[in-house]
């Protein structure tokens, strides 16, 4: 467990389920309505690069709800070749995205 500090007013504190270096998979589920997890990363495996802190949940904020409890947000790093089968750049090329904890599962 890693303690994530709040970076958003009233965000509160939460204990992160993942730590930097952990391998995670983005859930492959569908979502209706506003969602900040891009389609192209769903089902893809990456590594926790860092923990940003806790932020209000955009999937609730979008519908006039307070977005609480705040959710832990991670910076997740993916190998480009893992994201795209046909990526023709060097193997070292990477992509980072900010993903909320409830979209991540251990890999």
């Amino acid at each position: 467990m890693v303690k994530a500090r709040s970076r958003w007013p009233d965000g509160g504190e939460a204990a992160g389920r993942f730590a930097p270096g952990d391998r995670v998979r983005v859930a492959a589920r569908e979502a209706l309505g506003h969602c900040r997890t891009p389609w192209y990363l769903r089902g893809k495996t990456g590594v926790i690069a860092s923990i940003h802190g806790t932020f209000r949940d955009p999937e609730r904020l979008a519908y006039h709800q307070p977005g609480l409890p705040a959710q832990v947000l991670y910076k997740v790093r993916f190998r480009q070749r893992e994201v795209w089968d046909r990526y023709d750049g060097p193997a070292g090329d990477q992509l980072e995205a900010d993903i909320f904890e409830y979209w991540l599962e251990p890999a």
């Binding site: 958003w8 947000l73 480009q80 060097p90 090329d93 992509l95 980072e96």
Partner: peptide
């Protein structure tokens, strides 16, 4: 250069 990593940052959330 190919020996330099290209790192893309997709601003998907609050940063």
């Amino acid at each position: 250069p190919r020996d330099v990593e290209v790192r893309v940052h997709d601003s998907t959330a609050d940063l």
